[in-house]
Design a protein around this nucleic acid. Structure first.
Lengths: 245, 245
DNA sequence: TGGTGTGAATGACTTCACAGCC
DNA sequence: GGCTGTGAAGTCATTCACACCA
């Protein structure tokens, strides 16, 4: 991420066997991209694809793609390529997309409402089964058939409804409290849109998406592109001490 | 990244001088986080902060924070720490946040509308000055005081209104076309929420945020946590060829 | 004493280049 | 001939450890 943004890495506390669980984080980040490209190809009727073609469709180097797939345990056919449908199914299996995940969204301001209605989630196997907010003005509202409930009911719903992923879209000040509620109720995967760092116990995976951060990174590039043409250079200014005694 | 999602790196086509423009990408990604933490501290009345404390607030190692700041040309005071206000101003300068950026959002479905209303953008110096869509049912709508215009007017608006960042929130099928419009009109920074890889000329910075990708990464961790307790292991299954002759 | 600045060591990721197989 | 699978090399990023300074 973002980056997306970058997420806290989960490190298995007691993983004895070397499994697919310890794939490099960088590889895991790319798997969803491969999957998306494979879906497109499949819909277009393509049956077989070379690493070169698939890599181009996902913006990576073909050697990296081959290495990624090789690490997964997937394999192609020399001189031929990869079977699109089989590879897609294989990657979906590694990502755990064979069974649908059950998602709760907490915080239904503009962003949370957009997330609740975003079709891309259900399309890719994520069922949004719970919406929660603390604002009485929003509780009770119906968003595309799902009722917004009081956040006080969150813990119970997590247990009763098998929710295993929590999406935090609250203001920053409320985010840590919500994260604590999620963790206490047994959720071990959190997607955080609030602009703050969450403290969670080991074994809980947190990924963070901060929309403003992405714009600031673009701003950096924008700024230093123009600087290349002018003369102002931050690095060559003499260093000013940034603390006083 | 997060988002995070990962963005295409900009590589200056003809950068002669070694400036702040070629900071490591990893460092640039962290600067907005430092800035956010510094803002919090500043509002809390803190005047000076150690690398240890600031690192904890941003979830990084303190040595890395010091190295990042050192690369920027910012410096603290040994035995004291960094001056919060001065460091924040310095990082804002490096990120190019001293002058506000002018942003257009193209595609005003649920996500685009949420972005248009997201207060975090204007709070951090990004002025949303243009909203564009192709759907006549949305064109003409007023979103918090900004009119949604026909995307046919995009190129003219970019030139007349000094827009320098484009945010694409259209469906995937339209995204490349919109990107071409942006690039042709001179925009060199694009934030892409559509689930597809954009082709752009060198010198144009693209960052991609795919919300479903983040959930799929969480799904991976979720899946392999439970696998650790059961016996099914993808890696140890015998390799099946994924292409047929 | 407390905390920065930074070489050196480690580790992670990516690319190259090519052997081997279909 | 074409394409995969993978050691080896190269690049980039992070952490360690400590000299140095207020």
């Amino acid at each position: 991420m973002t980056t997306t943004g970058e997420g806290t890495d989960h490190r298995a506390p007691s993983g004895p066997s070397a499994t697919a669980a310890d794939l490099p984080a960088a590889t895991v980040r790319r798997l969803p991209e491969y999957l998306r490209a494979l879906s497109s190809l499949g819909e277009a009727g393509v049956e077989t694809v070379s690493s070169e073609t698939l890599a181009a469709a996902t913006g990576v180097n073909s050697a990296m793609l081959r290495k990624d797939l090789s690490q997964l345990g997937a394999s192609g056919m020399r001189g031929v390529g990869y079977n699109v449908a089989a590879l897609a199914a294989y990657i979906a299996g590694v990502l755990g997309l064979t069974k649908d995940s059950r998602v709760a969204i907490i915080g239904l301001g503009h962003l949370g409402q957009a997330l609740a209605r975003y079709p891309g989630f259900s399309e890719r196997g994520f069922d949004i089964v719970g919406l929660f907010d603390a604002d009485p003005g929003i509780i009770g509202k119906d968003l595309d058939g799902i009722l917004v409930r009081d956040v006080a009911l969150l813990a119970g719903a997590i247990r009763d409804e098998g929710i295993n992923i929590g999406v935090i879209a609250t203001p920053g000040a409320a985010a840590q409290h919500v994260a604590d509620l999620l963790v206490d109720a047994g959720v071990t995967s959190i997607l955080n849109f609030a602009p703050c760092v969450l403290a969670v116990p080991q074994g809980v995976a947190v990924r963070k998406v901060d929309l403003a951060v992405e714009l600031q990174i673009l701003s950096f590039h924008e700024h230093h592109k123009t600087i290349g043409r002018t003369n102002t250079d931050v690095k060559q200014q003499s260093r000013r001490p940034l603390a006083e005694t």
